[in-house]
Structure formats: C-alpha cells, structure tokens
Simulated scan of single mutants.
Amino acid sequence: MPSGLASRHRRSASLPRPGSCHTLQHSFATQLLCQGTDIQTVKELLGHKSEKITQIYTHVLSKISLSWTSKSAQIG
C-alpha cells in the first residue's frame, strides 16, 4: 500500500495519531508475537530475508512486557 494511501485512510478514519505502512507492519508483528506466533512465521509473513531483522520485534515486545509489568505492580 503506497504511503499516501495509508495517510488518506488514516485521516478518513479520524485516527488521532500519525501512522504509516511501516507503523502498521510494526503493530501487526507485535500483535502476532503477543499472541504467541513463532518468530519464523512472523518472519515469513513480513517478508524478511533474515530472522535477525524480525527479532527486533521481540526486543520491542520485551519493553512492552516490562511496561505492563510495572504498571500492574503499581495497581496491585
């Protein structure tokens, strides 16, 4: 999807934050990993040649997990 098309759809949906095709790709990968999808499947779905590139999402996921853990500790 061309970037201009993604921007138009984002504006027409009145989404409050900026986004792009790349943002959608990151969200998709993060959701898959949160749901327990294995890294090889995510790599293939994203079309990455190297698993090292896909592993970037596991790093992001661990940061998200730490954030959730610290927020839940504050509530409890």
Rank of each mutant, 00 (worst) to 15 (best):
K63F: 02
I39W: 06
G4L: 06
Q35N: 14
I56F: 10
L33D: 01
L66P: 00
L45Q: 06
S65T: 13
P2N: 15
K52E: 12
L15R: 06
G47F: 09
Q74V: 10
G76C: 09
D38C: 12
H22E: 06
G36D: 09
R17F: 11
T58Y: 03
V42R: 01
L32Q: 13
S7C: 06
C21P: 09
T58G: 01
K71H: 13
S50E: 15
I75H: 11
K71C: 02
L24R: 02
Q31L: 13
L45K: 05
H48R: 04
H22D: 05
M1I: 08
Q31I: 02
Q55K: 15
L5S: 11
H9W: 14
T69S: 14
S14F: 08
V60W: 05
I56V: 12
K43A: 02
L61V: 03
S3I: 03
L33T: 00
Q55D: 10
H9D: 06
L5K: 12
S70M: 12
G47V: 02
L66M: 12
K63Y: 01
S70G: 07
F28W: 07
T37N: 04
S50R: 15
M1N: 09
T54F: 04
L33G: 02
K43N: 11
S67P: 00
L45C: 03
S62P: 00
T54E: 03
S3A: 09
H22F: 03
C34A: 14
L24Q: 00
S65E: 12
P16K: 13
T58A: 10
K52G: 03
S65A: 13
V42I: 07
S12A: 15
L24M: 10
T54K: 03
Q35I: 01
I75M: 10
C34N: 11
H26L: 00
K49P: 00
G76R: 14
L45V: 09
K63M: 08
L46P: 04
L5M: 12
S70V: 08
